[in-house]
Design a protein around this nucleic acid. Structure first.
Lengths: 142, 142
DNA sequence: TATTGTTATACTCTATAACTATA
DNA sequence: TATAGTTATAGAGTATAACAATA
């Protein structure tokens, strides 16, 4: 039986939600010209670092449902940023890799992400940053 | 000019996003029978603590757009959990308060939230928890 | 049987824009 | 002019359920 909670401000989950909202808002306001969402950048980034990655791998690393992953992959394919490889041994797995356009856009996105991260990180010391990431990882199990 | 970032795992924003996702997932899985979302519980909670609160106040405290607030208030009114007060001096402001049903459901929700929070907090010490909330507040400015 | 990809569907959250009423 | 509420609309993210192909 959990103890009762006095005030809404004591809810850790709320602060996580508000922090997420603040980050998302800043991202949306400053990345409109890129035409990419946070999730889309993450998928491009992973496909760049791991050419031939499959949807299942993306889903696991970004903690998404397969259907959710599909919708993001679709969006990137529609923009010709992501391409499919011809299947290998296991014909169920479809490897994904960046197109030339995808490479170019990811490069721009990484610069933009760096600015975004600087905005976010500016309020913390290096020690606090490391603590913060460790605490967050204990929530999402990364 | 921001420094370049090597790996996706170094992105603080990503960890915040993943942590939010993990919390949201646990909430959804364990609160289906309540029929309330996180946001709806937050609004009920605030209306309980501040009877006569206006939509603008809710929007500010939960960092939502007015239109977003409206949709949540509507959902709660449709379920007869939230009622409107007759306007006072400033006839633009409409005070909100919980109905009897809203009171009852909030009481149940608070217990469920307490369990949810226990699941979340179990992985931290008291000191870590306080640090964590402070770090999160510096992101969302609460 | 289990895994991978796929589609259809639905709901929540979020925001923009334009409108009305009131201050 | 500014604020509060409202409505219409749209997009992103999330998930469930059911299906086909493959292992």
């Amino acid at each position: 039986m959990a103890a009762d909670i006095a005030a809404l401000d004591d809810i850790l989950g709320l602060h996580i939600r508000l922090a997420h909202g603040a980050v998302l808002r800043h991202f949306s306001e400053h990345f409109a010209d890129l035409g990419l969402t946070q999730k889309q950048v993450s998928v491009l980034w992973l496909a760049h670092d791991h050419p031939g990655i499959a949807q299942t791998d993306l889903a696991r690393q970004l903690q998404m449902d397969r259907a959710t992953t599909m919708s993001i992959v679709h969006a990137l394919e529609r923009k010709n940023l992501l391409e499919r490889q011809t299947p290998g041994e296991d014909r169920r797995r479809i490897g994904l890799r960046l197109s030339a356009d995808g490479q170019a856009l990811l490069a721009r996105a990484r610069t933009a992400i760096a600015d975004h991260e600087q905005w976010l990180r500016a309020r913390f010391t290096a020690v606090e940053l490391e603590q913060f990431v460790q605490l967050l990882k204990r929530v999402h199990g990364g």
